[in-house]
Nucleic acid binder design. Sequence first.
DNA 1: GTTTTGATCCGCT
DNA 2: GCGGATCAAAACT
Length: 209
Amino acid sequence: MSTPWAELLSRPAEEAAWDMLGCTIVVRDEAGAVAIRLTEVEAYSGELDPGSHAYRGQTARTAPMFGAGGRLYVYFTYGMHWCSNIVCGRPGSASALLLRGGEVVRGIDLARSRRRAARSDRDLARGPARLAQALGLTGQDSGRELAVGGRAELELAPPPRRADVRTGPRVGLTGPGGDGTTFPWRFWIDGDPTVSTYRPGVRRHRRRT
DNA sequence: GTTTTGATCCGCT
DNA sequence: GCGGATCAAAACT
């Protein structure tokens, strides 16, 4: 069986990223559907990538990453947030794209109801945990195959011009080979307002008492 | 836990 | 009202 996105998602995440920007992910449930046009993603790729959850091998949590491209990988982090990925590449390659930011293009009322704290529509899916929450994705969806007409699917779009795509270090990686600059695999659409704010190394002041 | 989010403050138009 | 800057708190694995 095949899907419209099978070829695209069989490529390594850092290659697929260029064509994933501008595509729309749709997630449906009883309450309706929310569709988000992707404006910012981050690639993670298997064994050679110290920043990847798959770097130290397969676990129950990361098992979906080791499957074939075309499924979701959703993980829980910092005791509070869900982050969603689309698995890319060949089976066993453990390559995935973290969805970091996007624009809600359909189902905006449903997205608003899930994201009560959003100050404006721009903030509905600006940031990886916000995006996952706007879509209603949790760990229960980890491993789920994208399917035409299914709970989750992808709508392809013409890729943005390369000149409109910026790349840079990924967020939150430290240590040798994993400092984010070895693999500058953060991709975003230049100037798009729904790209998340990146605040590197912000110095926190100890609260004065 | 050096990330993410939300609340808050503040300047801008 | 919008949005940048700053600060504090932290579901559900």
